[in-house]
Structure formats: C-alpha cells, structure tokens
Nucleic acid binder design. Sequence first.
RNA 1: GGUCCGGUGGCAGAAUGGUGAUGCAGCGGACUGCAAAUCCGCGUACGUGGGUUCGAUUCCCGCCCGGACCUCCA
Length: 455
Amino acid sequence: MASPSHSLSLHDSQTRQKRVFTPIDPENVRVYYCGPTVYDAVHIGNLRAMLSADILVRLLRCLYPHVTFVRNITDVDDKITARARENGETIGALTARTTEIFHEDVAELNILPPDVEPRATHHIDDMLAMIDQLVASDHAYVAEGHVLFAVDRCASYGALSGRSPEDLLAGARVEVAPYKRHPGDFVLWKPSSADQPGWDSPYGRGRPGWHIECSAMSRRYLGESFDIHGGGDDLMFPHHENERAQSLCCAPASGFAHTWLHNAMLLSNGEKMSKSLGNFYTIRQVLTRAPAEALRLLMLGTHYRSVLDFTWEKLEEAKRTLDRFYRALERTPPLAEVEPASSLCAPFMNALCDDMNTPLALSCLHPLADAALQGDQAASDALSACGRLIGILTRSPDLWFRSGADDTAIEALIAQRAEAKKARDFTTADDIRARLSEQGILLEDTASGTSWRRA
RNA sequence: GGUCCGGUGGCAGAAUGGUGAUGCAGCGGACUGCAAAUCCGCGUACGUGGGUUCGAUUCCCGCCCGGACCUCCA
C-alpha cells in the first residue's frame, strides 16, 4: 500500500463537489459500476467507463487493504431479445458470445476483472424480492400486468441528476402509457409474451425493467449502502436516478451510494461515439493501427470527466509516448518488486489522488523517463511502478519493440549491412535499411552495434 | 423548450486570485557516413463584453460557440 499521507478526493456527481473520500468501512471499500448490455460487441466509447473504474479500483487498492468491485452484466433486455431474433440464435447463445467478446476486449485494454460480475438473469429472485418490498411499502403499484415505480412517492427523486419530475415532462420523450399514474413512473416488471423471455412472478410471467437489476445486485453483493457507484454520464438519468430511487425507498436510512462517479463521453469527430450514429470503433479496429496499450494511454491523457475526441492522430501520439517510456525502461531496466511508495512517485500519486487526474499524473512520468534514459535507476524503478499502477508499461521493452517480427531474417540483414558499412558501402547499407523500413522495421545504429524495432 | 458541462499556444491537455505544467508538432544546435534514438536551446494561448479586486486565465453576470442528458445508451 502507498503511504497513508495520500488522501483521495473524488468529484461526486450528486453534490457536484470534489470531496475527500472517506470509506464506510476502511477494511472493505465497496464499488459498483454498471457493465454492458450484452447484445453486441462494445465500442471503445463503452470502454471508457470500464477504464475509469479500473483506474479507480487500482488506486483504491493502493490506498486500502481490501476493495470489493462489482460490475454487472445485463443479459436480459429487449435489445437482446430483438438481436437474437434477427441473428436467428438463442438469447443464451448471443449473450454468451458477446460476453466473451467483452471479456476479451477489456482484457486487451488491461482492465482488470471485477471481484464479482453478476448477471441479471441469475438475480431475478433478488429483483422480485425488491419489487415485492416496493409494492408492499406503496412505492410501487401494479397496473395492467406491469409493476411501476411511483416517482412521486420518492421525495428526493431527481436529486442525483438535478431535475424534478416536472422537468422531465418538458422533454416530452417520456412514454406516456395510460396505466401510469405519473408520466415519469418507470417499469420495475413488465409482462412477457410467449416469445419473450419471462419468469413467473406474483404479477404474472414477465421480465424485469432495466433499472431494478442494479439495485438488486448491488444490495446482494455490497449491501444497502456502499461507497462508490459509477458509470457513464449518459447513465445518470434515467438509469442511476431510478436505481437510486428504488434502493433508497427500500432502505431509506442507507444513503445507498455515498459517492457517484460519472465519466464524460468519448467523441468521434466532435460527436458522441454511438452505435446509432455509426461513428464508432471497436477495439479490434484500433488494434489494426496500434497496440491496445496506446489506446489505454490515449484515454488516460484526458481527465475522465472531460469529453475526449478520439482521433487516429492521438492514437499515434500515444504510441510514440509509449515508445519513449519503453526506451527508458530498456536503457535502464527497473529492478523487480518496486513499490509506488518511492518519493519519486509522490507527484504522480498526488495527481491520481486528486480526483484521478490521470493527465497530470502522466505528465509526472516524463521527467522520470528523461532520468531513466540517462541511467537513473531510481527513476526507472519509479517510472515502472507508476506505469504499472495505472496499467501501462507492463510488458518487457523487448516485447513492446520487437514482438511479432521475424528476428532471424532481420538479424541476417543487419549482419549484411554491418559488412557493407565496414566496407564503407553506404549505398548497400542504406538500401538494406530502406528495405527493412518498408516492412516497418526501424534500425538504430549505436556505438555498440545496430538494434532494431518495429516502427 | 428544460437541465448540465465546457471554450487555454499549430495540435492535444493540466493547474492556478499574483513569474501559465506537460506532451506532440515546428525551428536552431550537438551527436551520426546519412538516419534513428538521445541531449541542449527557442517561439507561440486564456471565446467575447462587462463586474468584483491592488491584481482575473482563475470568482460573478450577459452574450457567442460547442457538447451531453431530458425514459435505448459507457
């Protein structure tokens, strides 16, 4: 663990203030993030929330002895039902397949798995128990086979997203169903037809509404109150607002999530990256242009609460930055088992502890790389430790610079070129270098000989 | 229409009521057969109009511009 002198501040979306983070139970910090709905591969915009959570959890693990991180999988949803029908596959096959792709994608970005990854379909009983409770306490009502949450029975409804139930009518995009008492009321349980997934319940065969799953699963694994709940900005309303209302009405004194974290959106050409606009990239598309580690660094180069406009230029720049960092680590290899407690890491840690200011933290890495390039062992150790803390610089420089190339053939050409150089036949030498360059192999002559790397 | 966030050098991107980080790109130099890498040095910015203040990029108000949300969303 890092020195206890680092105190973590986080910006809480509900109070819109940066506050010193104080865990409910310092022995077990509890975090919940909303995970994906598994009907399709995620795009790199979706991964931003996963990465924000990853940085948060990695940091918390430095500061506290134990962290429980829960991130759900939504595997029941009308989009899933529709997609499975389009694809001519079963819902189970679709959700299993896309969950696997999701796991591969987050692993590519070096996003660590959560401690618990509950699936909605495994917690229908928990959801129904909560729905029963809400109906019994008159926070919800049954109408035409639906169970609806009554927003006007929750005094603080709207407190998270900063809107009143009346405000919500202004947008006029609410579904005004005749069975709703208030247009803002939302579904906890809805009836399923024979060709829709459904579970038996006191309200008939049906399926859960979107929001209840997170209330049920966070309660199951983290309790009625926990430390941090996070997700993308676009989840703040309605998803988190509704989740909060459900949970608080079940446990009014709990406070539910003490801190809410919302990351801003990833843009593409100045607009939110989204499936519907078609302006998205998957991680596989990125991998054709740069290692996933470059994408990770790119994303960390903007604060999580600021919008980030994705461009290929930024990806290239991130890759070059990693080239330099890895070169520093190659020049002065870090000693094993270094801890981020070194005083050299203090500016970096302070930046991270200030509401996860990753851009500022990254700027602290450059002087370390400069020093490591000059042979400074402590700087190299610190660079490696800081990098690992945020999930970069985890591989060997050799792997970074030279993986996937045919080193035998390259070494042979380098030997040929060395002969040519010895004979001062620079035309041949330059020709060999040019040929390798076309294959993306870059030669570097040094006093001790020629080394190569992938460009 | 409602709610909220933002506008910083060529680009990206932080901090800050008082000499404005960092990176990339650019320019000059060292090194090199030439490169690459590395090293040294240099330049350029607070959307706009007011206000508060000894002093504003920072705080407040108006305006302009951009983005997000307003029951699909990371």
